[in-house]
């Protein structure tokens, strides 16, 4: 008889089996099918489909805007989380609840609302367009939509970590002579960094896959403001299923590589800062 490792909670085999089946049904099999469908193309055909100028321009916009949106959300999400944790102000609970709204709102509603506000005759659009800043129907509009839908991720990942961060650490740093900036840079930020990175990765991943809110505000001008998911839908509408899956495969691979890179970065910092050794 082999000696099984004793664990406090039973059912390891069951839960592992369940996890694998679940993951297969929901994630691996559909993704596998995508690869399978795309593999009916020859390598040259595949390459030709995924590198047309319109598609290339859409990659640039989709991944570029998503990375920038993730970065913007990381910065302002940190700020928002900080305010929500460290300060009390009237209406704090309402603000806290508002943060989650982009999760709940149907993305089309968000897209239409943003378009209405930022269009030439909208509230904000009418104010900024005379100054030469056009948001709606431009790549900038795509960015605005992606920042909107990605907002909750960083706030919700950083908030609990910030809540657990003892103010004693900051007091200790101050008593050792550290300035405010040094305290933030060397004491607070390293503690928040892993959560911040996770939030960034989530916001980025969500932005790459976002469709509903973007297509309304983007204007979908070929080579200018078309996002990659839109290219896929366009192909589908033309019954070019193989072409659509080919682009989807490229998106999948690029997203996976980027997320993996973020994950490796997480692991590396964890090791370097002694959270795991």
């Amino acid at each position: 008889m082999s000696k099984a490792v004793r664990r406090v909670l039973p059912g390891f085999n069951l839960s592992l089996g369940y996890t694998l089946v679940y993951l297969s049904l929901l994630v691996l099999i559909p993704l596998g099918a995508t690869f399978l469908k795309a593999s009916s193309l020859s390598l040259e055909q595949f390459w030709a489909v995924v590198t047309t100028p319109r598609v290339l321009a859409s990659y640039k916009l989709s991944f570029g805007a998503s990375l920038i949106a993730g970065a913007i959300n990381a910065f302002f999400g940190l700020l928002l989380a900080w305010s929500l944790v460290r300060y009390t102000f009237p209406g704090k609970r309402i603000v806290d609840a508002l943060v989650d709204l982009p999760f709940a709102l149907p993305t089309a509603v968000a897209g239409i609302a943003l378009t209405a506000i930022y269009a030439k005759n909208g509230w904000v659009g009418s104010l900024i367009e005379p100054h030469g800043l056009q948001v709606a129907f431009k790549p900038l509009g795509v960015l605005v939509a992606l920042v909107f839908i990605g907002l909750p991720f960083v706030v919700r990942t950083v908030q609990p970590v910030l809540q657990d961060l003892e103010t004693e650490l900051e007091e200790a740093a101050a008593s050792l002579g550290a300035s405010r900036w040094q305290t933030f840079r060397h004491v607070v930020f390293p503690a928040l960094y892993p959560a911040l990175l996770t939030g960034f990765a989530l916001a980025f991943a969500r932005a790459v896959g976002e469709y509903g809110s973007v297509i309304f505000i983007a204007g979908n001008i070929p080579l200018v403001s078309e996002i990659t998911p839109l290219m896929i839908i366009t192909k589908l509408e033309q019954y070019d299923y193989v072409g659509a899956t080919a682009i989807a495969v490229v998106m999948l691979v690029v997203s996976f590589v980027l997320l993996l890179a973020i994950n490796l970065l997480q692991g590396w910092t964890a090791k370097r800062t002694g959270r795991e050794s």
Partner: peptide, 22 residues
Amino acid sequence: THVRERQVGFVFQHYALFRHMT
């Protein structure tokens, strides 16, 4: 005088060591 400039050493009950540093 701010705590930074008081030159006092403060030791906390729960140590308040910086966890990400050696």
